[in-house]
Design a protein around this nucleic acid. Structure first.
Lengths: 212, 212
DNA sequence: CTAACCTTTGTCCATTCGGTCAAAATTTGC
DNA sequence: GCAAATTTTGACCGAATGGACAAAGGTTAG
């Protein structure tokens, strides 16, 4: 009778909650929070609206659960950025992983983008807390690389921003990317092209080596 | 009695339509199309809802007018990208202009981002037509620079994407940028920092010149 | 088999929202 | 100054939407 609280319960609860979250990711990432209706999500999950509301009391609860789960997987690549290998190799690996995420999890990227675009009403504390701490930490590592002359001296925070921006662009602005590339270049190969280009950009920039 | 059709009319019509469009830009860019209500826009414009609807028959008409006006100014920097000056100077200028637009017109950037994120339901034809044509044209110019050895050989389309992504990031993801930079580095100076960093990135990349 | 619990659904409700309409208020052309 | 046209508003409407609820339908443990 009472809807399930924080702690998970039966097998069927696990399954249905999972089902709902996946459906909600599909819907929210395509239409935003306010643009999505509970009915749409229920439809996508193959159940009735009251049934869905049995598992998540409010629309916002779904959204919240989705964001919470998202953030862990979303920041995983950055967490992996480590001080062990060669700096340029580390950065190249990070860029590649982020681009793969944009390719394989575009819905997650768009959900996140939607939230930030709207002013991050539900995750501002996380941005100022957990995320800032993580980025500061990685920025320190990057600064170390600069001190050692392994990479050029520049702003570590903006470096991270530029990696985020360029990779997530292929998920968030996918429609535009495909429209501009056209049917030929816009096919599945576009992510390989992007990977090649971004590696070139981040390692060597655009100025020819030989010339001035 | 009859609401104004396509052709503009009286002085007061001009003024009020302008007022409404500005208010709508504020609201739409902050909440997206479906997240915004006519009442909100009317409030922001300091008039009653029916009065607003006297100037724009439907909510979508406001949005459409807004997008249409936006696109001209939004693509202006790219149109200016020309074959006259030094290629690297041209690109640097383009990046700087785009970043200035992100700083000075963040609402426009977010309105556009919102539209693309939702799958560009209202501007797909423009993307596949006008925008693609323009980008193809500029890509050809860039390819010429590459042939002349003025800039490194790489993918011109993805080059343009990366400029869009890195600059618009500072408007669209402003909340995140400021949260991560914190109160100190996140102040007004962040755009100068970004400009310096991006110039470094696009010209020389991250690999140190001297070392391997 | 059955009692307790879990899951599902049809129905209903209050609110919000886009939009209409007729009448009142104001501006404009002469 | 006045008639015609334009602008503004209060009241209203139907549809969509988030959510409540009780009753019906299944599941599970003993």
């Amino acid at each position: 009778m009472t809807p399930p609280a924080a702690l998970k319960r039966t097998r069927i609860q696990q399954e249905k909650r999972e089902l709902i979250l996946d459906a909600a990711l599909e819907v929210f990432s395509a239409h935003g929070f306010r643009g999505s209706t509970i009915d749409q999500i229920a439809d996508a999950a193959g159940m009735s609206k009251p049934n869905l509301l049995y598992y998540f009391r409010r629309k916002e609860d779904i959204h919240e659960a989705l964001l919470q789960r998202l953030l862990d997987t979303w920041l995983a690549p950055l967490r992996e950025l480590d001080n062990v290998g060669d700096p340029l190799t580390e950065l190249r690996g990070y860029i590649r992983r982020k681009l793969e995420m944009a390719r394989d999890y575009p819905r997650e990227s768009r959900l996140f983008a939607n939230e930030i675009l709207q002013g991050a009403p539900r995750i501002t504390p996380m941005l100022e807390g957990e995320l800032k701490t993580l980025v500061d930490e990685k920025a320190e590592i990057i600064r170390g690389w600069m001190r050692d002359g392994k990479i050029v001296r520049t702003d570590p925070w903006h470096l991270i921003f530029s990696i985020w921006a360029t990779t997530q662009h292929y998920a968030d602005f996918d429609v535009q990317v495909r429209a501009v590339l056209g049917p030929n270049r816009g096919g599945e190969g576009r992510f390989e092209d992007a990977a090649r280009y971004l590696e070139q950009l981040f390692l060597d920039g655009l100025k020819p080596r030989a010339a001035s």
